[in-house]
Amino acid sequence: MQIVVDLNRCQAYAQCVFLAPDVFELHGEESLMFTPAVPDGQQERVLRAAAACPVQAILVGEPAGPAAR
């Protein structure tokens, strides 16, 4: 599972950090950091975080490109 956050949409409501704190992190009060390749065991939390984003800025998918299966 792979995630992309549209940082132009992100308004730092931080709902994703509450729901998947090992994948999303607030740097200071407003800057969002995240781990694009979702670690094992975090998929369910990431899906909850994506559903909860008030501006729907989190895109969840499988890796694309020639390296993907």
Binding site: A14, V17, F18, L19, E25, L26, H27
Partner: peptide, 18 residues
């Protein structure tokens, strides 16, 4: 609100609810 958020959520307590 920020003072109330410190023990409840990010950035200071990100894992509290999880």
């Amino acid at each position: 609100r920020r003072l109330a958020m410190r023990p409840f959520g990010p950035p200071h307590s990100p894992g509290r609810i999880d």
